[in-house]
């Protein structure tokens, strides 16, 4: 599955809110993201969430972004792992109570 999480946190903020800070007028911000001519031209592709592309593909042609389907479910069936394979199953063993509890507990701690 393609990661929509970039490595640095500034990127994540940008990915969601775009380059501009709160100063931009609140109207139709989504438009601003995709009308690439003005200020964000060369970076536009970079800031587009990867998932967005997948979603569009799934919907087929002819649906422009502003008319994207209103749907909260997002499942990429094409990229499902084969959970019948032992190795892949073992990779999430510790997410279950049958796994290592100390490892799971350490996930709950967040470093500030």
């Amino acid at each position: 599955v393609e990661r929509t999480i970039p490595k640095q946190n500034t990127n994540l903020m940008r990915l969601v809110y775009g380059e501009e800070s709160a100063s931009r007028s609140t109207n139709s911000v989504d438009e601003a993201h995709h009308s690439s001519e003005d200020e964000e031209s060369e970076d536009d592709e970079f800031f587009k969430p990867k998932g967005e592309g997948n979603k569009k593909l799934r919907e087929g042609l002819g649906s422009s972004h502003v008319n994207a389907e209103d749907c909260s479910k997002f499942t990429n069936h094409a990229n499902l792992k084969n959970w019948k394979e032992v190795e892949i199953v073992e990779s999430i063993r510790d997410r279950f109570i049958t796994g290592d509890w100390s490892k799971a507990a350490s996930r709950g701690q967040v470093l500030e």
């Binding site: 599955v1 990661r3 990915l15 609140t26 911000v29 969430p49 749907c71």
Partner: peptide, 16 residues
């Protein structure tokens, strides 16, 4: 991972 719908929701929350 942030879902596309989650990202859209975050943007709309900021706007409204």
């Amino acid at each position: 991972k942030l879902s596309p719908n989650g990202i859209e929701t975050l943007r709309h929350i900021r706007d409204f």
